[in-house]
Design a binder for these strands. Structure first.
Lengths: 333, 333
DNA sequence: GTGAAAGCGCTAACAT
DNA sequence: ATGTTAGCGCTTTCAC
């Protein structure tokens, strides 16, 4: 690869001069500047980002830790970060940490070795304490989809509990009284919080959700099918189901219809996330919108600005899911 | 950040020795090795990947150029590359090149500046000639989803034309004779190739597809709806539609049913790609499988191995879409 | 088994 | 307006 020195030699100047024109620095004569530009083009010179990062002590890379690139939810998250990154001439370095503390740690470490000081982390498995320590040491870290009080000014999060409440209120307003819940079997906080919110709100209406009516499975389409089969097999009666996410909800609809139940005529279904799928499904899915794209953009902005002028108001860090009423829920008769 | 020198000072040795233990090099006494390991842990040392890349002249990064991270198709592509990358201890650097020659070029350049010699490129807009030149200069580049004869050993591609033929054969075998086609308005080769294959195969059965029966729109759900409306408005009769992709196909089904046509009873629909959506649409979508995950893994493998031992057989680089028969097509009566 | 020294490609302070 | 120099953090010969 062509280097600064090569260009310098060809131009008959020192490499410092070439560096100046590459960086649009001052103190270079217009003639020389022109000549060097020409040479750079001819010889196909590209600055070495590694060398640059080494000497300037800053990288033009923003790191992202997510469990999986293929999952539409995380893909959207990454895309949100990408959008604001390119505005700041930063590039995305994705490090996948498959839902285990060990691999999340590993993913962060790899990013740290790359010296990308700016990192947006989606971590569900690393313990609070460890994360707190990590964030104290790295001022440009931002945590997304998780709230830890001690570092709350670095957390961009969704109020899952409130989401559960909103779902409950919606179903109650449609006169449903026999409710069921399909939740995720993953050992993370989100399903618990959503369920808690749901149950609390039902309690206000004097409805208790007995444990027989709560089934769990993997948070996937297949998981939704399996969970629904379990629910059906249990013989419980229900007119509406609050489902952990859209993928499971669509699996649930599929199984329900295969068993002769019509959605929403016989059973109302409400999902969570509002992924693309929700709009494409038939019936179109009523769900709670998880504004992950917006949240990711927000997180990136905070990560890039922290330490700079702006002070961020905590209010902008907490997001509330919004009810998207479509076709999968209807009034109970 | 702690550096090699810091560790060296603390251990009372030269930084060369520390470097040796970090890299598991030979010629270090077991006592010293142990002591240094301890120090590394205590002081939280992480090697600087930039410095390393600079001196070794190789990066541990694999670059990916795709138009968009959020699109499920490209997310799956990226994920395929990620899978094999981590097996080789390489990390994903994603550079998004939004379907314009200029931004594709820019994306590649950014990767080049990072000195990631290994790059998998999805480019639809840069001209053949330019790509050929680029690939000659960079032996570790791999082109995905596009075939250029001059660099055919670097192309991992899908036979789109054959896909069109398979679709035609399927529809013909179901006795359909009045065919229509919904294609993409994007100025790339894929839609043309699919259409060409489709038309050629019909011609063998002495069926011509007049231009009135071919409508185009954006390759999205909404595009599918719009295209279908156009088709309906044209007053043409048809019993089956070959649709550019699954998203459009689902839009088409939606519009068809809204207009009182049942799928597949009145109209058969065949899509392309076999995205997750296809399995969960109602009716479940008959489609042509685009094995992008496999193709991406393949591409990554080739990119990482080229110049090494294995010589790749060209046969493994061409993929044929596979017919996935589901519920959206049926025999014409 | 360990150290000294050179150098990867670049930026930036200091000369001239 | 341009050159000289030092050094970022590391690997890697070559000496000892």
């Amino acid at each position: 690869m062509t280097t600064l020195k090569d260009i310098a030699k060809a131009a008959g100047v020192s490499h410092a001069t070439v560096s100046r024109v590459v960086n649009n620095g001052p103190k270079v004569g217009p003639v020389m500047r022109e000549k060097i530009h020409k040479l750079i083009k001819e010889m196909g010179y590209r600055p070495n980002a590694n060398a640059r990062a080494l000497v300037t002590q800053k990288s033009t890379t923003i790191g992202v830790v997510i469990p999986d690139v293929a999952d539409p939810f995380f893909a959207t998250l990454a895309n949100g970060i990408d959008k604001v990154s390119r505005q700041h001439n930063m590039q995305l370095l994705i490090s996948t940490g498959k839902l285990s503390a060990e691999s999340e740690r590993e993913a962060i470490n790899l990013l740290l070795e790359r010296r990308c000081e700016t990192i947006v982390i989606h971590s569900k498995k690393i313990a609070d304490d460890e994360l707190i320590e990590l964030f104290k040491a790295n001022p440009h870290f931002v945590l997304i989809d998780r709230y830890i009080a001690e570092i709350k000014d670095k957390c961009v999060w969704l109020d899952n509990k409130e989401g559960g409440k909103i779902a409950a209120r919606h179903l109650l307003s449609l006169k449903h009284r026999q409710l069921a819940c399909i939740t995720s079997s993953y050992e993370i906080e989100d399903p618990k919080l959503r369920l808690t919110g749901f149950v609390e709100e039902l309690a206000k209406a004097n409805i208790t959700l007995d444990s027989q009516r709560v089934v769990s499975a993997e948070p996937t389409l297949q998981g939704g099918e399996i969970a629904t089969q379990k629910l059906l097999a249990s013989g419980q009666a229900f007119s509406a189901i609050f489902v952990y996410n859209d993928a499971m909800a669509i699996g649930a609809i599929s199984t329900l219809e295969d068993n002769g139940y019509s959605v929403p005529n016989d059973v109302s279904i409400i999902g969570f996330d509002d992924v693309l799928l929700a709009r494409y499904s038939r019936p179109k899915l009523t769900t709670l919108q998880y504004p992950i794209d917006l949240m990711a953009q927000n997180a990136a902005q905070i990560a890039l600005h922290i330490g700079h002028e702006q002070s961020i108001s905590i209010d902008t860090l907490k997001f509330i899911p919004q009810l998207i009423k479509r076709e999968s829920t209807s009034t109970y008769f």
